[in-house]
Amino acid sequence: MKKDIILAGVGGQGILTIAAILGTAAIKRGWHLKQAEVHGMSQRGGDVQSHLRLSDQPIWSDLIPFGGADMILSVEPMESLRYLPYLSKEGWIIANRTPFTNISNYPNIEDIYAAITKHPKHVLIDADAISKEIKASRAMNIVMLGAAIGHIGFSEQEISDAIRETFSRKGETIVETNLRALQAGIQAQT
């Protein structure tokens, strides 16, 4: 069993936290993990992506092959489309509706939504609005994680445990906020 996930967004939107939580959950299962990150120049407001590979078998390549990803999980709508060459024919797009518009030529958002919803397996939710609604505005990324986990075969319990482990140093309030965000994400996509 393997899960190859492209995490996408704009520098600073928290995709590496998503990777850390999924990674923790995978390791608890006794799985292998490789996670390629983006550092350096590309982080300065540019598009960022991380290749997260989880498997019960040894993993060789740090990069997911084109056409091999089981999921693109993007915290920004346009960024979900940038990595389509990586998505397998059966793969899922999980995308946030709220655009990050730090460029002047950001396309018409309806065209972006149309390109996402054209894909047979997609989830498109407004994670920014949801996180604000539940007073967890800094946990938008965790809302997105919640919307994704069902489609990559991770249970709510596994991810909750991983969130506890990841955020425990930051105190119970932060843990609770993130668990609330996870829950909201799970509900939003069903």
Binding site: V10, G11, M41, S42, Q43, R44, G45, G46, D47, P65, F66, G67, G68, A69, M78, E79, L81, R82, L84, P85, Y86, L87, S88, K89, G91, N102, I103, N105, Y106, P107, N108, D111, I112, A115
Partner: peptide, 17 residues
């Protein structure tokens, strides 16, 4: 060799800034 879909034309570049 495998390949997903081409990046749709609507996607704009987002260079570092």
């Amino acid at each position: 060799d495998t390949y997903g879909e081409d990046v749709p034309a609507v996607v704009a570049a987002r260079p570092p800034a």
